[in-house]
Computed example of a mutant assay.
Amino acid sequence: MTERLRDGMRSALKNSPWKLIVLPGTESRSKSGMIIPDGRTDIPLMMIEVFLRTQEHDPHAIIECKRIAGSDTHLCREYIVEGVDRFASGKYGENHAVGFMVGYVLSDTSVAAASGVNAYLSRVSRNADHLVPIAIIDFPTWHSRHTRAEPSSPVDLHHAFLEFADVLDE
């Protein structure tokens, strides 16, 4: 699914004024002194103008993708532990103030997926990390803010849940 999303993003950007490059998923190192990569980013993005100005080769934005179903507590846990927490810990986008997550909804709806994630967060006493609906585009999206140990600034995550349940049932 991530390859299809990546292809769709590349296709949409062909006629776009945005100067973005959608890179393939890559191994990454969460700390500059690491020799061996300790993670894999699903969809790294690079802004051409930023690259030309700074010669910064690391991705300028990261999209992490996870499977999700609001009624599946295991998938909701994985969305947080293997997705959100990687941004909060600095494993992904340590130098970024903003990150992005996409949930592939395997059953139910995007609203049910966000509710399932919030139910998991409530069970583990992380109410401050709840996903809150936000109107950025004409599509249901959510926002969450997470504290970090280092750097001390929080990370804001934007979440989109793409519904595939009907497609998968066919």
Rank of each mutant, 00 (worst) to 15 (best):
G33N: 04
D7T: 06
G116E: 01
R4Q: 04
D42K: 09
G25N: 06
E150K: 11
A112F: 04
F100P: 02
L5I: 15
T141Y: 01
D166G: 09
L13F: 12
P151E: 13
A113D: 05
L20Y: 10
A97C: 06
A112I: 01
R10L: 10
D85E: 15
L106F: 02
A149T: 06
V81N: 09
I48Q: 13
R6L: 05
H130S: 03
D169K: 15
S30G: 15
F164D: 01
S107R: 12
L162W: 08
F100V: 06
E49I: 00
E64I: 09
A119M: 05
Y120P: 04
V124N: 01
T147E: 11
M46Y: 05
H158L: 13
A128N: 14
M34A: 05
D108Q: 13
P59D: 11
A112S: 11
T147G: 06
A88K: 11
T73I: 12
S152W: 00
D129Y: 07
G39R: 03
E170A: 07
P151I: 07
I48S: 04
P24H: 06
A112L: 09
S144M: 05
D166V: 04
I35R: 13
P154E: 02
V22W: 04
H146A: 05
S16E: 07
I62Y: 02
S89M: 08
V105L: 00
T26P: 00
V117W: 01
L168N: 01
